[in-house]
Simulated scan of single mutants.
Amino acid sequence: MVIPIHDINPLRRRPIVTWLLIAVNVAVFVLFEPIVTSVAGADTATPTSVCEQERFFDRWGAVPTEILDNQPAPQAPSGRSAGVNPQGQVLCEVESPPSFDKSPVLSVLTAMFLHGSWLHLLGNMLFLGVFGNNVEDRMGRFLYLIFYLACGYVATYGFALFESDSTTTLIGASGAVAGVLGAYLVVFPRARVIGLVTFLFFLPFWLPAWIVLGFWFLLQYIYFIGMGVAKGSSVAYGAHVVGFVFGALAVLPFVRALRAAGPARYQPPDQRWVRRMPWP
């Protein structure tokens, strides 16, 4: 796998929407979510915190059976622990009916800003930060925000169609971010990206975007169809695949306009003398 850390793709203005999306995701995770892992990934969970997190995700996350029927489930975790089974799994008390109201359609939106761990959050925000700024630059801020949210909705509902009987809660920005990656690949396939190649001891390499993002998509697809080692994991690879394909197809008819679009090039006030760079 290649972990992207930077791209050579000049911006024409500050990516304010991308920055705000990252800030909101981090703020929600730090300020509102019950966290059961440390930044280093160590398990800091107690039975009570696990049940509190399960209740929080059930209330604000997207559940395939709920969003397809547009009906909330008749029961939900109460947030209180009922003990631990012989396998070491935490058992949570259930309340029926739930003591909170839930809109399945709106849960798709709120689920985009929830993450299960620091690793989940930082991985999504890294990809959004590296690739989202250029997509925003060419689309414009308002259209980019609508596009981002649309990718998240399509990815979530697409996954729900593949897993129509699933009651597993979907959370994370992965589907929306995957749509941004698909758009970037179509608009900037030859942009240079520096990435850390994991199977080469994290050595950095300059690679074209079509290799970095093409390999990422291929890996998601392999896991999705069950050929990879991640089969049976809790990662919604189907949402990644649907979001990526939707993002790529959505911008394909407008690729020439997007490559040529953009406001005046941005330069910091104290660096206006810097030579203008050619644009991709």
Rank of each mutant, 00 (worst) to 15 (best):
G116F: 10
F224W: 11
L21H: 04
L196F: 13
A150S: 14
F205Q: 11
S96T: 14
A236V: 13
R141N: 07
P74S: 10
A239S: 15
A191F: 03
R55G: 09
M227H: 02
S99I: 04
F162Y: 02
G238L: 10
I222P: 00
F188S: 00
R275C: 01
L252R: 11
V36P: 01
S117T: 12
V24N: 07
T18L: 08
P72F: 06
P189N: 09
F201D: 15
V251Y: 01
V30I: 15
G214L: 07
V274M: 12
P15C: 11
G226W: 04
E95R: 09
G182H: 09
S164N: 04
V135E: 01
A178F: 06
F254I: 01
R14L: 15
Q87C: 01
C151H: 05
F100L: 00
L109F: 13
P278F: 01
V135M: 03
Q87F: 13
W273L: 07
I16W: 12
T110P: 07
P10L: 13
N25Q: 13
A111T: 06
F224Q: 08
L109S: 05
S234P: 00
A230I: 03
Y153M: 11
L68I: 08
V30T: 02
A248Y: 00
A239P: 12
V84I: 15
T110D: 02
E95N: 07
K231H: 07
Q75S: 15
L181S: 05
G61P: 02
A173W: 00
W60C: 08
L170V: 08
L200G: 05
E163F: 15
A73S: 14
M277I: 11
V17G: 03
I146P: 01
L119G: 14
L252V: 01
L203G: 08
L122R: 09
